[in-house]
Simulated scan of single mutants.
Amino acid sequence: MAENLFDLTGQLALITGASRGLGQYFGRALARAGADLIITSRKKADLAPFVTEIEALGRKAHPLELDVRDHESILTMSAAAEQIGQVHILVNNAGCNVRKPAVDVTWDDYNLILETNLRGSFFVAQQIAKQMIPHRYGRIVNIGSVTSVFGFAGLAPYTASRGGIRQLTMSLADEWGRDGITVNCLAPGWFQTAQNKVLYENQEWVDYLVDRIPLKRPGEPHDLDGAVVFLASEASRYITGQTLLVDGGISTGATRATVQLASKS
């Protein structure tokens, strides 16, 4: 057994959706723990600055083009990844969202979200698992959301996709556990990203949100570092099929049953 259960030295991690946002934070955390990276984006050129950043940390970063809505693109990326080396870790991060009242969601809106977040995650996991199975080792981290377990108005297709990720995680964990592969879901709460930046410009909404979070602040990207390294490492070797919520406690329900009392100092 490794002396440091969180050490990823000598491992290769594949991260989808790594041209911006949380995907890059996941990549930095894994690189600092010792992993080399394969990073993907729909446009390979968008990955160039991040490659430079990871190399400055002393790790390798291999950029690959990937559109998770295109099956041929997934197959091409998977074949290229296999040529780079044995993939030990997959972080299934690529995703999108469309915020609309349910009555205004279009057929195309729904397809975009489900095809990206749920179907894409499955077929990427499928192809990378095929490479992991002969080695009898793998760590798959599907990125879900607090909406994997909690409903929010205006996010109907998104919550459907993230709820599906949680169920998919459990099914794949059961199927691939015999092959030495763990499959878990990392579910962030409310974090400011490129997708939702406009929300955080509304101070009234931010105050409302913070009031519902027991830790009294939205998430900061580094709050996810420990969780992704944990699920990618030997420290989580007997954990599979689980959803790890990193949400400041908002999934407790955050609805008061009594008058809020000031904390005593």
Rank of each mutant, 00 (worst) to 15 (best):
A125I: 15
R59S: 13
L47V: 04
E53T: 06
S78W: 14
F152G: 10
F152H: 14
L209R: 13
E201I: 09
G120N: 12
Q11I: 07
Q195D: 12
P134R: 04
A194W: 06
L14V: 04
Y158V: 00
A227M: 07
G151C: 12
E65F: 11
L215Q: 13
G219T: 07
T147D: 07
G248F: 03
L75G: 08
T9E: 15
K100I: 08
G253Y: 15
I38V: 14
A56M: 02
I250C: 05
E82I: 09
R20Y: 04
C96E: 10
G120S: 10
I133C: 06
R139N: 07
R139Y: 06
W190P: 08
S171D: 02
E82N: 13
I143S: 00
A29T: 03
I74F: 11
I128C: 07
T243W: 00
Y238K: 08
D7K: 04
L245P: 03
A262Y: 04
S263A: 13
E204T: 14
Y25F: 13
A18H: 10
N93G: 09
N111A: 10
V146S: 05
I143C: 02
R139F: 05
G17A: 03
Q192E: 15
E53I: 01
L155K: 15
M77C: 13
G144H: 00
E201A: 15
L64A: 06
I128F: 10
L47D: 04
D225F: 15
A29Q: 03
G138R: 07
P218E: 00
L37F: 02
E53N: 06
L224G: 01
C185Q: 07
S233Y: 06
D67L: 09
S145G: 03
G10C: 08
V98R: 01
H62E: 12
L209M: 14
Y158G: 00
L90E: 03
H135C: 07
G151N: 12
L261W: 07
N202P: 10
D67P: 11
D46N: 13
S19D: 02
R166T: 02
